[in-house]
Amino acid sequence: MIDAHQHFWQIGQHGCSWPTPDLTSVYRDFGLEDLLPLAQLAGVTGSVLVQSQESDADTDYLLAVAEQSGFIKAVVGWVDLAAESAPVRIARLAQQPKLRGLRPMLQCLPDDDWILRPELEPALAAMKQHHLSLDALVYTRHLPHIALFAKRHPELSIVIDHAAKPAVIATDCPAEDWRNAISSIAKLPNVYCKISGLPTEAGKDQGLEELASYIQHLLMVFGAERLMWGSDWPVIKLAPNKQLSIYKNWLNLVHHALAGCKTSEIESVFIGTSLRFYRIA
Results as ranks from 00 to 15, higher is better:
His145Glu: 03
Lys194Arg: 04
Ile160Asp: 00
Ile158Phe: 00
Val221Thr: 09
Glu210His: 08
Phe149Val: 05
Leu134Gln: 00
Trp178Glu: 10
Asp232Asn: 08
Thr140Lys: 02
Asp60Cys: 12
Glu225Cys: 01
Ser69Phe: 08
Met228Gly: 06
Met1Ala: 14
Gln206Met: 13
Ala86Gly: 08
Lys151Pro: 01
Leu32Ile: 04
Phe277Met: 07
Ser85Asp: 14
Ser264Met: 05
Met220Lys: 15
Ala164His: 00
Ala164Met: 00
Ser133Lys: 01
Ala175Phe: 06
Arg92Ala: 15
Leu148Cys: 06
His14Asn: 15
Ser264Asn: 10
Gly15Leu: 08
Val168Gly: 05
Ser52Phe: 06
Ala125Trp: 02
Ser157Val: 08
Ser25Cys: 07
Pro189Val: 09
Leu227Ser: 10
Glu33Trp: 05
Pro154His: 07
Val269Asp: 08
Ser183Phe: 14
His217Val: 02
Ser52Gln: 09
Leu38Ile: 04
His162Gln: 02
Ala186Gln: 06
Lys248Met: 07
Ala86Glu: 05
Gly207Ile: 07
Glu155Gln: 15
Lys242Gly: 03
Gly272Trp: 01
Ala42Asn: 08
Gln129Arg: 11
Leu244Phe: 13
Ala163Phe: 04
Val235Asn: 05
Ser25Ile: 01
Ala94Ser: 15
Glu225Ile: 01
Gly101Asn: 01
Gln10Val: 15
Leu137Asp: 01
His153Val: 05
Ile271Leu: 15
Pro154Glu: 06
Thr140Arg: 06
Gly15Lys: 04
Ile271Gln: 14
Leu238Asp: 00
Thr171Val: 03
Asn249Thr: 12
Val65Glu: 06
Leu219Lys: 10
Arg276Ala: 04
Ser183Gly: 15
Ile146Phe: 08
Phe222His: 02
Pro166Lys: 06
Ala74Lys: 05
His145Val: 06
Ile169Asp: 09
Leu143Phe: 09
Leu36Trp: 02
Lys194Val: 02
His5Leu: 03
Ile195Gln: 00
Thr20Ser: 14
Ile185Cys: 10
Val138Trp: 00
Arg100Asp: 01
Ala126Gly: 10
Leu41Lys: 14
Glu33Ala: 13
Ala181Leu: 13
Arg28Asp: 10
Gln95Pro: 01
Leu132Asn: 09
Lys194Ser: 01
His153Asp: 00
Tyr278Ala: 02
Leu81Pro: 10
Ser17Phe: 11
Ile115Asp: 00
Val65Phe: 05
Ala257Trp: 07
Glu265Tyr: 08
Ser264Trp: 04
Glu265Cys: 11
Val254Tyr: 04
Leu148His: 07
Leu93Ile: 11
Asp29His: 14
Tyr278Glu: 03
Thr20Lys: 15
Val75Phe: 12
Asp135His: 00
Gln243Ile: 08
Asp22Gln: 13
Pro19Cys: 13
Pro104Ser: 01
Ser184Ile: 07
Ser17Tyr: 12
Glu119Gln: 14
Ser55Trp: 09
Gln107Cys: 09
